[in-house]
């Protein structure tokens, strides 16, 4: 019983983070801000959902696989979003007009 409540709490927090990430993807003004909200919130949300799966199924094939999937997601998503941001900047996508400062452009000229 206690277990089930923990599973529901973890999964609902995860789903809430996922939804907020998707809303951020729609609302925020430029690529870099969208990367901030979308990938990070969705990563944490998905990891919480997978953690819920781990708690629900315990020490079995499913739990271990969910844990491995969570570790893979946590490991790969920052690398992916870093590569996307760098690619976007080198490709010349401008920052949002309300941005304060762009040290990268000042220093590298790209």
């Amino acid at each position: 019983m206690n277990n089930g409540v923990a599973v529901y709490v973890l999964i609902s927090i995860g789903v809430a983070f996922d939804l907020v990430g998707a809303i951020g993807l729609i609302r925020l003004p430029d690529v870099y801000n969208r990367l901030q909200a979308a990938t990070k919130c969705v990563t944490l949300g998905t990891c919480l959902i997978l953690l819920g799966v781990v708690v629900a199924s315990g020490w079995s094939a499913m739990g271990i696989k969910a844990l491995l999937a969570a570790v893979f997601v946590l490991w790969t998503s920052p690398t992916g979003s870093h590569a996307l941001a760098r690619g976007a900047h080198i490709a010349g996508v401008p920052l949002w007009a309300g941005s304060v400062v762009d040290k990268y452009k000042e220093d590298t000229g790209r």
């Binding site: 920052l95 762009d102 040290k103």
Partner: peptide, 8 residues
């Protein structure tokens, strides 16, 4: 949307 984005 209280954001102040920038690259530092």
């Amino acid at each position: 949307l209280p954001i102040r984005p920038g690259i530092v």
